[in-house]
Every structure is written in structure tokens, then in C-alpha cells.
Nucleic acid binder design. Structure first.
Lengths: 190, 190
DNA sequence: TTAAAAAAGTGATATACATCACATTTTTTT
DNA sequence: AAAAAAATGTGATGTATATCACTTTTTTAA
């Protein structure tokens, strides 16, 4: 188990440096958890107590529309952060679902803990700042892809960028991520 | 002029608190500039020296596709931050344009300055962290709107959220932001 | 290891939206 | 104030993609 915490520390130290003393302050704020395939980390209407850092497995965050269709915001795998950030930040009930596509292991961090850590350990404020920045940039790229590319072009780009993900998950989920129907996606390529 | 800097300080102090000493360290890193309608803050292929905080006016950031069509990432007005964040963060040539829809006034902050400020003044790391977080959340909402809503629903939502913006800018720019042709947008409502 | 469930493929048809072409109105510039 | 440029509106037509209905294949669970 301790090794899982080491992974987390390494994740921080890719961007910042931490003393042992700082790490000893930080680590207890993270709670280690496991869930099996199809179990939920977050459900709409429920409070969002945590954001999650994925140790292994595969998780999706998604909205469900009036017709019952899923629209996937994010696939989160090893080394990714995920939550319902809107609800988490504002401490209101969730508006999206987050659940496991595969058995998954992760750390939980509450908003209070995150803010405490950022106040006490300036390097961690920088860590989250820089991470958040990269996240922001990634979402801007995705918006551009939705505005400028056809569904098939987006599919090709995803195949190129994350070929293993495309093989790892049902195509209907890939379709729900790209913003295209599963039938149409099934007709792409050759 | 000094009053413009006061606006900037107030902008920070909506989220954090700063001592006069801290502010005196921060302020000189910001350069005050003005540009007229149609002038560029960033052009593709050029280095992205700064991110910008808008004092007044109206600015757009956008990509141009092979066919020459504009796709708008952001409308930035009073109190907003804007840049080509992908290029800024990686210090590579710009891949998008940023220009003035109206005469505009803003502050420029270089990457080096931002990092210096965040290292020296922990509260500022928290400021940028929190701002970036809100930005991230906003983009997630927009992605959901692109995945779940029709063009007309997105238009209605924008009319509801930013009615003044819709009146302030040419409809073809609204169309380029929503991801719909100007002709189709012109047929909405009644 | 067999039944049940989920995923994937495919034809037929429907539709939201794009594109093209051109007229009209509004705004900008001289 | 006149001329030029930009924005807007609208008909006609084309197309990418959605939806529906059903079959086949693969995966999961009893």
C-alpha cells in the first residue's frame, strides 16, 4: 500500500519538489480507495466530497440528457485527475456521473484538504495551478476539435492519439465522447 | 493610469489578499497597453510573449481552418484573461489569432513574470490556481453544451447568459463561437 | 458452459445544418 | 454626404449525421 502513496508523491515531484516533512503533511489528506467495474464515484444529485487521482483502472465522467443518452466529458486513467469539478468547486450536488469502466484504484482528496494543502505548502499551490493550466489547454483543444473537425476527423485524431483507449473501451463510449452516434461511428474507416 | 493598476489589484483581491509590499513587487511585471479595433494581440506563427488581462474593450481568440473560416474559442471582455495558452505555456509559435473586436486596453504578463510572481508570492499561485480552475470548469460546460445541445439551444443559452454580448458583436462571430453557420443562425428565433 | 446481456454492424429513412447565390440593410470610411 | 465595405436575410439545394429497426457477434455472468 505504501507504494501507492509513493506513486502519488512521484506524481507531484514530476512538477515540484517536496521535502519529507512537507510530504508527511500532505499524504494523510489522501484517502486510498478501490471500486469495481460499474460502481460509481459520483452520482447526480449527490454531494461531491472529493476529487480523485487515478492509480490504475479506467473511469469515465459523463452527463445524461433528457433522452437518456450519455455524453462523455472525460476518460480518466492512470495518473489522471477526475471529479465533477463544477459541483466540487461550488460544493453543490453533482450534475454528472463518474463511474468505473474497469476495476479501479484511486486516491480521494476533499476540497477542504486541497485548500489546506495549498495554503500550507506553496509548492502544492503551484502544482495544482500548473496541472489546472494543462487541463484548461486540453479542453480548449477539444473545443477547437468540436468546432473545426468532422466526426470522422475527430475519430481519426483520437485513434492516432490514444489508440489503446479506443481498443480498450466499447465503441459506443468512444462515440459518446466524440459527439457522434454509435451507428455513424461504426460506419467510419474500412 | 495608476487607477488602471488599482483595478488589477482589486481583481486579485477578489480572491486573495495582498500586502502593499507584495503588490509593489507584482505590479511592475504588468505592462499596460492599448490597441484599436482590428489590431492583433497574437498572430499564428508569431511568438506568444504574454497573457493578457482585459481592462476594457472586447477581444476574440480564434482559429482559422484550411477553408479560411474562423472558429472562436473565446470572447474576452473587461476582467477576463486571454492568450494562446497552448503556445504561451509551451513557448512555441501561436496557432491561433487574438485580436480586438473593439478598441481595447489591457495588461500584459510574460510567462517568466508569471512564474516569478507565483514562486515569490504564494497567494498569487493560489490566485492563478483558482482562476485556472474556474476556466477549466467553464470549458467543461461548453464542451457539454457542444455535445448535448442543438445549435439553436446553444444560441438560446447564450442569449440568456450574455444578451449584451450578442447585441454587441456581429452575428457571424456569434455563429463562429457556437459552431453553426451564420446563415443558419440567422434563421433561428423569429 | 450455457443463457443472458451488451456491443457491433448495417440498411432504410429522416433531419439539422451547411453551402451557394443573391438581395437588402447597416455600418464604416473618405 | 456619398461611396465602399460589412453585416444580415432568405430561397434553393446538398450533405453529414441521427434515428429506427433488425441481425450478428462478442462479452459477461449464472
Amino acid at each position: 500500500m505504501q507504494d501507492k502513496y509513493q506513486l502519488l508523491r512521484q506524481h507531484f515531484e514530476e512538477i515540484i519538489t517536496l521535502t519529507d516533512e512537507e510530504w508527511n503533511f500532505i499524504a494523510p489528506h489522501f484517502e486510498h480507495k478501490k471500486l469495481k467495474k460499474h460502481q460509481f464515484l459520483i452520482q447526480t444529485g449527490q454531494p461531491v466530497d472529493c476529487e480523485f487521482w487515478i492509480i490504475n483502472g479506467l473511469i469515465k465522467s459523463y452527463a445524461v440528457d433528457e433522452k437518456g443518452s450519455e455524453h462523455i466529458l472525460q476518460f480518466a486513467m492512470e495518473d489522471y485527475w477526475v471529479s465533477d469539478y463544477y459541483a466540487f468547486q461550488h460544493q453543490i450536488p453533482a450534475t454528472i456521473f463518474v463511474d468505473c469502466i474497469e476495476d479501479s484504484e484511486f486516491f480521494c482528496l476533499s476540497l477542504e484538504s486541497r485548500e489546506t494543502i495549498c495554503q500550507k505548502i506553496p509548492a502544492m499551490a503551484n502544482f495544482f495551478r500548473i496541472k489546472s493550466n494543462y487541463g484548461f489547454i486540453g479542453l480548449q483543444q477539444r473545443i477547437l476539435s468540436l468546432l473545426t473537425q468532422t466526426a470522422e476527423e475527430r475519430y481519426d485524431a483520437l485513434l492516432f492519439k490514444l489508440p489503446k483507449l479506443v481498443q480498450r473501451v466499447p465503441k459506443k463510449l468512444i462515440a459518446a465522447y466524440l459527439g457522434v452516434s454509435r451507428e455513424t461511428l461504426s460506419r467510419f474507416k474500412g
